[in-house]
Design a binder for these strands. Structure first.
Lengths: 225, 225
DNA sequence: ACCTCCTCCTTTGTATGCAATCCTGGCGCC
DNA sequence: GGCGCCAGGATTGCATACAAAGGAGGAGGT
């Protein structure tokens, strides 16, 4: 009989945190659709918490922009509109540009290797045509890059904006051409990062995001039809 | 007898919003010192609300980074440390760079004139040596600039980060030389904005923020002694 | 004297209760 | 027939009650 599972430090997080994270995941993954009403009674039952922590979660997600609070009428999942996506990607573009610059300067070789590993995992997914896996590793790479900039504030800001984008990702498909192009861009970004070419990485990342923007917004428009 | 005061639309905001704003102001103005413990009982009495909306406000301010939640031990005002300021200003630098670029393209002449008006108000304060007034108009100018970029997401992100900085502003003094220099920089920014020189404005704003960074961090260090 | 443990009090975390608001649908009136 | 109005029910907003955790202070042991 197992005496102790590998649980790490005994984890007892506040319920409102747990609720916030669970809800955020549900929204980001699109399992709570944009525009959907968030019924307190339903969600309390579903999450097994009372209304208080749940409502605290609503407030947090509202400041993150994932939820909209309608006074006296509850909360809804923020609708996704192309304009807001455009805005968000523009902001993320400059954030990632800065992140790349800082990462070029500050990241250790070990950290770069971690990113490289993720990159190869991503290539594997691309080769297999595994889009979900591709997105996952793609996300991970971008997040790590920002993290390894060493600027925690930047990382936080980036993460928050990222929630908005991820939702769209789950909705929008990706053309094969754009996919191939994105992979090529990643290859180049990684090379430049390894070379610690501060000036060039900024341009590359900004461009990469601009292309992503065009792609996502294009796909979204296509879905509107 | 007056039948109707000019109240505009009847304003009935949720208590938690009101509480959030009031608390945020208290923190930003430094009336709740960094590191200070936020006692729920005290604050409920002071704000005249019950614990529920107050605690919701805590959560919101925590995601904004102005408050830290210590599980089972309540909340404190986030301490100000130079490193975090550095980080924040770096991020705001690129955000404002983007904002300037967009404002150059999108702002109407009327909007630019609004900024110009604020600029002259600011000059007046500078001439009088009115530092508090100067900060106020300075803030207003930067916020308007970002707002007139036309990117609401950018504006939100900027505003949030700005809270952290404003707190430091109330603490750190300003050398006369740096003050004069800042005013000159503003003059130039305004001129370039009027000329709609997209490339140049970005450089100017980024530099301006870099200088601000150096100034604020320098002053903060000076206070540590 | 110092450390430890225990207890009490304070404060926080969560659940629940109550009042106010909003939506639904059905009735009356034009 | 359509419009507006008025319950009734459901849902939210806020307050409060209850349970659990943290911290302070004193008694007892070494």
């Amino acid at each position: 009989m197992e005496l102790a599972q590998e649980t790490g430090p005994i984890l007892r997080r506040p319920l409102h945190e747990e609720a916030t994270d669970r809800l955020r995941d549900l929204i980001v993954q699109g399992r709570l659709a944009p525009g959907a009403r968030l019924n307190e009674r339903l969600l309390t039952a579903q999450l097994g918490v009372s209304r208080t922590p749940l409502r605290e979660a609503f407030k947090v997600l509202a400041t993150e922009g994932l939820v909209e609070l309608l006074p006296n009428r509850g909360a809804i999942v923020s609708p996704i509109d192309a304009e807001r996506l455009r805005e968000t990607l523009a902001v993320m573009g400059v954030l990632e540009g800065l992140a790349g610059e800082l990462a070029c300067r500050n990241a250790t070789e070990a950290q770069l290797n971690e990113i490289r590993a993720l990159h190869y995992e991503m290539l594997a997914c691309h080769a297999r045509g595994d889009l979900a896996g591709y997105f996952k590793f793609n996300q991970a790479i971008h997040l790590k890059l920002v993290k390894y900039s060493g600027n925690a504030t930047l990382y936080n800001a980036y993460r928050q904006l990222n929630g908005t984008i991820r939702r769209a990702r789950y909705m929008a498909n990706l053309s094969q051409e754009r996919w191939d192009e994105a992979v090529r861009e990643h290859e180049e970004i990684l090379a430049v990062l390894g070379a610690r070419d501060v000036k060039r990485i900024k341009v590359l990342l900004t461009d990469h995001l601009t292309h992503k923007l065009a792609s996502v917004v294009g796909e979204l428009k296509a879905e509107d039809r």
